[in-house]
Amino acid sequence: MLDIALVSLIQDMSEKAGVEGTIQYWLRVGENLARRMGKEAYMGWPSFNVALREGRTAFSIEGDVSALTDLAITDVDGDVVGYIYALKRCVFQPTILRIRYSVGELPKADRQVAEEYNNTVRNSAVCNFCVIHQKFREEVAKNITVADQVLECYQLANRGFLGDTKTDEAALKKIGVNPEYVRSLLRNYACVYAMLMKGARLKGEEGSR
């Protein structure tokens, strides 16, 4: 019930504080949520991936996340420095459906907040909730170490409830993954992102230097 009540407030908030105000609120919520979850440390990628599978990491709150272990990200020396992860169902989808069958339709502010975010912050949102969610992921990554290396998260691609998609071509080039391959992942997943060791020297970056 709280999720639907919150969505009904978006319209009011956006009318009073502007969609920019809502974005600021959402970014802070994503940051606070990650901070409150605390820090995590893993011996290596296998232990992180097992923790993810067993629902023990902060990321597990998202739902059904798969580590695509066939898509390891390697650095210039060929060492594995990260993986691509895929979320089966958007965290906001159940709320969208619950709104559809209880209230009737999503407030217009949902689309307005997403568009404002795409125009002013980063072109990666398919709904207003992407603002909280993507910020949360970025901040959680900073709280996790794998083999004593702090992680960073790159949003790669996502698919909205209506089928619209966003793909970050620059991030894909950086980690050296074909955009067409990631688009094909969106047939079966709602959101695709990469987690890698901060500061890793990637092949894609070498090529662009």
Binding site: Y25, R28, V29, I61, V91, P94
Partner: peptide, 26 residues
Amino acid sequence: KETQITRLIEDNPFVDVAAYLFLEDI
């Protein structure tokens, strides 16, 4: 049918917890 569908859909914990933190921020 609509009621049955609504009953089947569970809210996602991410959205719920984010909502609590939004209220705490207020």
